[in-house]
């Protein structure tokens, strides 16, 4: 049982590390602000979700689990707010993203 939880923790940590490293590479590599927001969202959702799941596997049922879930839920609810505020402000300041534009924009 102990080995099983350790293996599961290792798997989750591996996926989380992959997620944040690819997100950070995307933050460097992608061409403009609106594309970089996707990479930042990947760090916020994927990285946090996998790392919190892995640490929950390691902690068992105690007060620590509640605190970890609190961190996860908080980042889960605030990540779209910061992404949307950044994107909205960039659009308000008159930046137009690269690429195709389909239909009439607001």
């Amino acid at each position: 049982m102990d080995l099983f939880t350790d293996l599961l923790t290792g798997l989750f940590f591996f996926l989380g590390s992959l997620s944040i490293i690819i997100g950070a590479c995307g933050l460097i590599k992608l061409p403009d602000v609106f594309s970089r927001i996707h990479a930042a969202g990947m760090i916020d959702t994927g990285g946090t979700a996998f790392f919190v799941l892995g640490m929950i596997m390691q902690s068992g049922w105690s007060l620590i689990t509640v605190k970890l879930l609190l961190i996860g839920i908080f980042i889960f609810f605030t990540s779209p707010v910061t992404s949307h505020v950044t994107a909205n402000l960039a659009r308000e300041k008159g930046m137009v993203p690269e690429g195709k534009k389909i239909g009439k924009l607001l």
């Binding site: 690819i22 590599k29 061409p31 990479a39 990947m42 959702t45 994927g46 195709k100 389909i102 607001l106």
Partner: peptide, 22 residues
Amino acid sequence: IISNFNTAKVIISGNVEPEIFT
């Protein structure tokens, strides 16, 4: 989780064609 993997694939392979619509 599914779209996380898809985004990772797009970032690694590099076929980024951004589009905006309503």
